[in-house]
Each structure stands twice: as structure tokens, then as C-alpha cells.
Lab assay of single mutants.
Amino acid sequence: ALRETGVIEKLLTSYGFIQCSERQARLFFHCSQYNGNLQDLKVGDDVEFEVSSDRRTGKPIAVKLVKIK
């Protein structure tokens, strides 16, 4: 799958939103999709991810998040 990059724009307890670098979009992500310690993730962090689609709504979502050092 194609990896994309973006910036954490909003972060809540169990989910957040990424502002994409490659496209004009804000993508939802669930915190279970982040492969690191959530305490280390904060607004403004650069992340890399794959784009999938929500099974219920069909909308694009970010999965398999990795923080870019």
C-alpha cells in the first residue's frame, strides 16, 4: 500500500485527525492504529501512514501510523 505523510492536527483520547501533506484532506485515525507509545504522540508531529477506508462509511481513514523522527 502507498504510504503518505501528514501532521497530527487534533488528538483526543482514542482518536485524532491528520492533515495530509499530499492531498487536501483531514483524515481520521483511531489511536489503536499508532504503533508506538501514545504519550509520545502530540499535535504537530509528522507521521507516516497508509490510507484505508472506513468499513461503515466508506470514507478514507489513516491506518498503520508511524511517527517520523
Rank of each mutant, 00 (worst) to 15 (best):
A1E: 12
A1R: 02
A1G: 06
A1Q: 03
A1M: 04
L2S: 12
L2W: 02
L2F: 06
L2I: 07
L2D: 04
L2M: 15
L2T: 15
L2P: 02
R3M: 07
R3V: 05
R3E: 01
R3A: 03
R3S: 03
R3C: 03
R3K: 08
E4G: 15
E4Q: 10
E4S: 15
E4I: 11
E4T: 13
E4D: 07
E4R: 15
E4L: 11
T5I: 02
T5D: 02
G6E: 00
G6C: 01
G6P: 00
G6A: 02
G6H: 01
G6D: 01
V7I: 11
V7F: 11
V7L: 05
V7G: 02
V7H: 10
V7S: 10
V7E: 11
V7W: 04
I8E: 00
I8A: 01
I8L: 09
I8V: 06
E9P: 00
E9T: 15
E9N: 15
E9L: 13
E9I: 12
E9W: 04
K10G: 05
K10F: 02
K10Q: 10
K10N: 06
L11T: 08
L11P: 01
L11E: 01
L11F: 14
L11Y: 04
L11Q: 04
L11R: 07
L11A: 03
L11C: 05
L11M: 14
L11S: 03
L12V: 10
L12C: 10
L12A: 15
L12H: 15
T13I: 11
T13P: 14
T13H: 06
T13V: 03
S14L: 04
S14Q: 07
S14I: 03
S14E: 04
Y15I: 12
Y15F: 12
Y15Q: 07
Y15T: 09
Y15G: 03
Y15E: 02
G16I: 01
G16E: 00
G16C: 01
G16F: 00
G16Q: 00
G16P: 01
G16R: 01
I18V: 08
I18C: 09
I18M: 02
I18A: 02
I18H: 01
I18K: 00
I18E: 01
Q19G: 09
Q19I: 15
Q19P: 00
Q19H: 06
Q19E: 09
Q19Y: 03
Q19D: 15
C20Y: 13
C20T: 12
C20L: 09
C20W: 07
S21W: 06
S21R: 13
S21E: 13
S21N: 15
S21H: 03
E22K: 13
E22C: 08
E22A: 09
E22P: 03
E22T: 03
R23L: 04
R23P: 10
R23F: 05
R23I: 09
R23Q: 10
Q24E: 08
Q24L: 07
Q24R: 13
Q24V: 13
Q24N: 14
Q24T: 11
A25S: 05
A25H: 07
A25V: 10
A25T: 12
R26I: 07
R26E: 12
R26F: 07
R26W: 04
R26L: 13
R26G: 11
L27M: 09
L27W: 03
L27Q: 01
L27T: 02
L27S: 01
F28E: 13
F28W: 08
F28H: 15
F28T: 06
F28M: 06
F28Q: 07
F28S: 11
F29S: 01
F29V: 03
F29I: 02
F29D: 00
F29T: 01
F29Y: 03
F29C: 01
F29N: 00
H30R: 08
H30S: 07
H30A: 05
H30N: 14
H30Q: 12
H30D: 05
H30V: 07
C31D: 03
C31E: 14
C31P: 14
C31Q: 14
C31I: 02
C31F: 07
S32P: 06
S32K: 03
S32A: 14
S32G: 14
S32H: 04
Q33H: 06
Q33C: 14
Q33S: 05
Q33K: 14
Q33P: 06
Q33T: 10
Y34G: 12
Y34W: 12
Y34N: 09
Y34L: 10
Y34P: 09
Y34A: 04
Y34S: 09
Y34T: 10
N35D: 03
N35G: 03
N35S: 09
N35C: 13
G36N: 11
G36R: 08
N37F: 09
N37K: 11
N37V: 11
N37Q: 13
N37A: 10
N37L: 14
L38E: 09
L38P: 13
L38G: 06
Q39T: 11
Q39M: 10
Q39V: 13
Q39S: 12
Q39N: 13
Q39A: 12
Q39Y: 06
Q39G: 13
D40P: 04
D40G: 12
D40F: 06
D40W: 03
D40C: 10
L41H: 01
L41W: 03
L41S: 01
L41R: 00
L41Y: 02
K42Y: 10
K42A: 11
K42S: 14
K42T: 12
V43H: 02
V43D: 06
V43W: 02
V43M: 05
G44W: 04
G44R: 06
G44L: 04
G44H: 13
G44K: 05
G44I: 00
G44M: 05
G44E: 07
G44Y: 02
G44S: 03
G44Q: 06
G44F: 04
D45G: 03
D45I: 04
D45W: 01
D45T: 12
D45Y: 01
D45R: 01
D46S: 11
D46R: 11
D46K: 14
D46Y: 09
D46I: 05
D46Q: 13
D46W: 08
D46T: 13
D46N: 09
D46V: 05
V47I: 09
V47C: 11
V47G: 00
V47F: 01
V47K: 01
V47N: 00
V47T: 02
E48T: 08
E48I: 05
E48L: 03
E48G: 03
E48P: 00
E48M: 04
E48N: 08
E48R: 04
F49T: 00
F49M: 02
F49H: 00
F49Y: 15
F49D: 00
F49S: 00
F49P: 00
E50H: 05
E50W: 02
E50D: 08
E50M: 07
E50V: 07
E50Y: 08
E50I: 08
E50R: 07
E50G: 11
V51W: 11
V51R: 09
S52V: 13
S52L: 05
S52P: 03
S52N: 12
S52I: 07
S53K: 08
S53C: 12
S53T: 13
S53Y: 08
D54N: 04
D54W: 05
D54M: 15
D54P: 05
D54Q: 07
D54T: 10
D54V: 05
D54Y: 07
D54L: 15
R55D: 08
R55M: 07
R55I: 06
R55T: 09
R55L: 10
R55Q: 14
R55W: 09
R55V: 10
R56G: 09
R56N: 02
R56D: 04
R56K: 11
R56E: 08
R56F: 08
R56A: 09
R56I: 13
T57N: 15
T57Q: 08
T57D: 03
T57L: 10
T57Y: 03
T57W: 07
T57C: 08
G58E: 09
G58C: 03
G58M: 03
G58S: 11
G58P: 04
G58V: 08
G58N: 14
G58I: 13
K59I: 06
K59V: 06
K59N: 07
P60Q: 14
P60H: 15
P60M: 15
P60I: 14
P60G: 05
P60F: 06
P60E: 15
P60C: 11
P60N: 13
P60D: 09
P60R: 11
I61L: 15
I61K: 13
I61S: 11
I61T: 08
I61P: 02
I61A: 12
A62G: 12
A62L: 04
A62Q: 01
A62Y: 00
A62S: 02
V63D: 05
V63R: 12
K64D: 15
K64L: 05
K64S: 15
K64I: 02
K64W: 02
K64P: 00
K64Q: 15
L65C: 11
L65M: 11
L65I: 10
L65W: 02
L65R: 01
L65Y: 01
L65D: 02
V66H: 06
V66C: 12
V66A: 10
V66Q: 07
V66I: 14
V66M: 12
V66D: 08
K67T: 10
K67D: 05
K67H: 02
K67I: 07
K67N: 05
K67G: 06
K67M: 03
K67R: 14
I68C: 04
I68V: 12
I68D: 03
I68E: 02
I68G: 12
I68L: 05
I68R: 04
I68S: 09
I68Q: 13
K69I: 05
K69D: 07
K69L: 08
K69R: 05
